[in-house]
Structure formats: structure tokens, C-alpha cells
Amino acid sequence: MAGRKINPWLKMALDLGPVVVFFIAFVRLKDATFTYGGTEYHGFILATAIFVPLMVVSTLILWRLTGRLSPMQIVTLVLVVVFGGLSVWLNDERFFKMKPTMIYLFFAGVLGWGLMRGKSYLALAIDEVMPLAHEGWMLLTKRLALFFLGLAVANEAIWRTMSDQAWVNFKTFGLPVAIFLFFMVQGGLFKTYGIEEQDEGQSPD
């Protein structure tokens, strides 16, 4: 059942707002240290502690306004709470940095499992948004699964070898830009396998 439509700018604010707030909080707090209960917490942990509840609130607001959440949104929220909570609880930023890796590996695994069964789970999630022929969905799903694997590898490489600032920049700007560019370069696939044009019998380059 399709959810209720909301203002696209409001949706964007709810989707990206927590990430932007995390970035601002990190920039302001990255050199600070706070003591609570006899334990010292650095700015990264405090920024994470702000991000997790804000992500929960923004997702709940989105659910109340639209009447539904996609499986991707639900999985993302659960992993944010689990890995972000572990980082704050154990005072160890590595858990939060691993969170994108877990998210992208999970999505790649789910899409790959569907492909092995001859199905596109991506089509089940967004078919109403981008109607494609079955062949188009299978090809797009394969490409997206490989793309998610690439993002997981990139995240691991960056947080393990670069500074906190570099990783935060990657998470805040690099990941959204990479996803945007991925779908932009799929224009040939959408044109070839779009429902309106599937009778032309063309193949993507």
C-alpha cells in the first residue's frame, strides 16, 4: 500500500537533517572532551549521541506523515540505533564508523540473494517510482548490489586509514553524492527498459 505524499523538501529535511546535524556537531565538538560518570567522552561520541535520537525522531515523524516506512529505512534505523548505541555505551567510535559498512553489506546481500532466486527485491521496493521491464530491474539490481559492495569497501578503507574528519566528510557528503551519481549514470538503462519504451527492443551500452 502506497504511503501518503508529503512535501519533497520536508522529506529531504527529515532524511538528511540528522546527518547534517551530526556533521555540525562533530565540527564544533571534535576537539572537546567531556567527563560524565568518571568517564571521558570525546566530541565524536557526543556527536553520535546527538545523531542517534535525532535519527529516531525524524524517522518516526516521516512514518507519521507518510503512513509507511521502506524496508531500507527500517533497517537503516535499526543499525543506527544498534551501532550508534554501542559506540556511546562502550565509548568506542569504531562501532559507529562500521555502521555504513554493515548497512551496505546487508543491502548488497539481500539484493544478491534475490538475484540468485531470479527476483529483483529492488523492484518490490520502488516499482511504483520507476516502472521498468523485468530485465531492467534485474540489471539495475545487479549493478546496485555491486555498488553497495563498493561503498562498504570504501567505508572500511576510509575509517581505518584516514582521520575522523575525513570519514565524517565521506559520510556526510561522499556517500550521498556517490548514490546520486550512480542513479544519474543509469539513464541509458531507464530509457531502454522503461515500461513506455520496452517495445523498442534496445539494449543498454
Rank of each mutant, 00 (worst) to 15 (best):
M1E: 15
M1L: 05
I6H: 08
N7P: 04
L14T: 00
G17E: 01
V20Q: 06
V20K: 14
I24M: 02
K30Q: 12
D31Q: 07
D31T: 10
T35K: 10
G38N: 04
T39W: 06
Y41E: 02
I45N: 07
I50M: 00
S58E: 02
I61G: 08
L62I: 06
L62D: 11
G67P: 07
G67H: 07
L69T: 01
M72G: 15
Q73V: 04
L79P: 09
V80C: 11
V80H: 14
S87V: 04
L90D: 11
F95R: 05
F95E: 02
K97N: 05
K97D: 08
K97A: 03
M98G: 05
M102T: 12
V110K: 09
W113Q: 10
W113L: 12
L115I: 02
K119F: 02
S120F: 07
Y121N: 15
A125M: 14
I126R: 15
I126W: 14
H134S: 15
H134A: 12
G136K: 05
A145R: 06
F147G: 00
A152D: 03
E156W: 10
R160V: 11
S163D: 13
W167G: 08
K171D: 07
T172S: 14
P176Q: 05
F180E: 06
F180Y: 12
F182G: 01
Q186A: 07
G187F: 06
G188A: 01
T192V: 13
Y193L: 01
G194R: 09
E197K: 14
Q202V: 08
